[in-house]
């Protein structure tokens, strides 16, 4: 029983990260119909940025956290302004390919800046002692991860439902032209979405780095897993992202625990295929998806 619990808790931790990355995909997808394949690279930059500020420069951890996330958000803005906005025919396919290019570019730059070695990053709490939950051991950092992810989920939900800006963003997501006619500055909303999604990625990078260590090439797989989670939960649905992420994490962990560690990564993509065949809109997605 404690074995099962250990697998479950491990799965929830990784799943929460997948969920957070999926959330980043969603925020952007809602506002722009765009899948940003550089999302994983924002995660990597968040982690490495946090390492540079917190470990190399010795800033307080809270400050480094905020600064790393802010810097990556700015980078998200920059990506939109420099690489995506000037595109003459902003159709989804060319834009998506540009994001793929951006991801390769960012990875290359990160390799030049940080080198190819992985780095170790301290946890948000100094204690490295695991917490015992019914016989299963959990790192304090895992609790941080789950807590922070839940906080962001709730925050994003409240932002969308309770604030004017949030509502304006949702309006843009529902129908950009209609929102624009009603006087919502849809351009600015798109920018905001970019900053948000990059920031969310960076948060993921900062909180996962103490557990997985961070290196310039960590983003690719995390980005893909986050994408799987987003598809699983239903692209565009915030709660779907959370459910998809946790489900994926737990499935992976159980697969390792009860079958073989070799099939871990296969699980994510099998699940993705399954969902695309059976329920293309995802578990919590709107059933009629008509985009593009």
């Amino acid at each position: 029983m404690s074995e099962f619990l250990q697998f479950l808790l491990t799965g929830i931790t990784t799943g929460a990260i997948y969920g957070l990355i999926a959330l980043g995909f969603n925020v952007l997808y809602n506002a722009t119909d765009l899948i940003n394949f550089a999302q994983g690279e924002f995660v990597m930059l968040g982690g490495l940025g946090f390492y540079t500020l917190g470990v190399v420069l010795g800033w307080p951890l809270g400050l480094s956290f905020a600064a790393a996330v802010a810097a990556v958000s700015l980078l998200g803005l920059l990506l939109e302004r420099v690489a995506l906005r000037p595109v003459k025919k902003p159709e989804p396919l060319p834009l998506i390919i540009i994001t793929v290019g951006a991801s390769i570019f960012l990875r290359g730059v990160a390799m030049r800046l940080w080198g190819k070695d992985p780095y170790s990053v301290p946890g948000l709490t100094a204690s490295a002692e695991p917490v015992k939950v019914f016989g299963a051991a959990v790192m304090p950092q895992s609790l941080w991860i789950v807590g922070i992810v839940v906080a962001f989920m709730v925050g994003l939900h409240l932002f969308g439902k309770r604030t004017l800006t949030g509502k304006a963003m949702e309006a843009c997501a529902i129908h950009r032209n209609a929102a624009w006619i009603l006087g919502i500055p849809s351009d600015r909303m798109v920018l905001l979405a970019f900053a948000f999604s990059a920031g969310l990625g960076a948060v993921g990078g900062v909180i996962i780095a103490p557990i997985t260590m961070c290196s310039y090439d960590m983003g690719t797989m995390l980005g893909l897993k986050g994408f799987c989670a987003a598809m699983l939960g239903g692209l565009g649905s915030h709660w779907g992202a959370a459910v998809g992420g946790v489900l994926l994490g737990v499935l992976e962990s159980l697969a390792v625990g009860y079958f073989s560690s070799g099939i871990k990564d296969a699980v994510a993509f099998l699940v993705l295929l399954g969902i695309l065949f059976v329920r293309p809109a995802g578990l919590l997605g709107a059933s009629a998806v008509k985009r593009f």
């Binding site: 250990q6 990784t14 797989m221 560690s261 871990k264």
Partner: peptide, 20 residues
């Protein structure tokens, strides 16, 4: 006898089985 993938970020599941 357990295994893990080169890019895996968590091996607690395997170690739990070994511990048993």
């Amino acid at each position: 006898e357990e295994a893990y993938g080169a890019n895996d970020t968590d091996m607690t599941a395997q170690l739990t089985k070994i511990k048993g």
